[in-house]
Amino acid sequence: MIIDAHTHLEPLVDSQAKAHTAYGMVPGNLQDYLRQFDENGVDACFTFMRRGLRLESRICESNDGLARARDKAPGRIYPWGTVHSAWPEKKIRSEIRRIAKVHGFHGLKFAPIVQGYPLSAAGMDIVAEEAIDLDLPVTSHDGSPEYCSAIQVAYYARKYPKLRVISAHAGLRELWPDLIDAAKELPNLWICLSGPTQWGIQTLYDRLGPEKLLFGSDGGLGHPAITTAYLRRIERLKAPKKHKEMILGGNALNFIKGHVPGSQPDGCL
């Protein structure tokens, strides 16, 4: 079973248009998204919004759109919502509770580089309090100074040891080495491999083993080859088959709310 722990879907219908091109491609609808992952043999995805991460005014609407997409493709889409750290405290708390309890989301996704604040912003303390209380993991874009480098994601995990934190890009091409010591030290820090070089992915595996690593592609919005490329990287990883299976999906199961160890999520192939 393959679970892609980092994908994006555009839930805003008016943003599925040429004017909102992502990397030269028009963002597709839910069917396009599912087809891309079918073609790549991916069974299920952790699904994040797209434009809502940049447009604070459309976050709640995007959270709702992800919930609708999940309802149309249960077992394939595991939505992670977002809030904005600059919102009033009451709104941060209420929206997190709404997407956790009403929508049943599986985690929170942040992209501080486009949302415009560092992980050390006061609002992220409120996020952590709620996420811990609701047992929601948090994933953050990383690899991008000055708001969300890899070491800043490590800080967030260190600051909140009861919060499960996933580095969404493993520090991208250059900052992944910061995660080696951090992931060894911090039991609450995991690493999604959507970003490092092949050597970086291999080194993270060699130094950390498979338990902390998750396959992710950042696919869903553009060309299906985005996902193919990262599947090739895991395929060429020098590691036993069992470890590759953990990285490709086994470890991600632990982040699916209500998952019973040893079983597969409903709807998975």
């Binding site: 491609m25 050597w199 985005i226």
Partner: peptide, 29 residues
Amino acid sequence: RNGPANYCHWQASGAVERVVFGSSAPEYI
């Protein structure tokens, strides 16, 4: 160090004539 997303971006930006292939081996295969 680039992938399909940026390749598509180069195509859409009309920059293909300015692109050369490099692998950065051994960073990549």
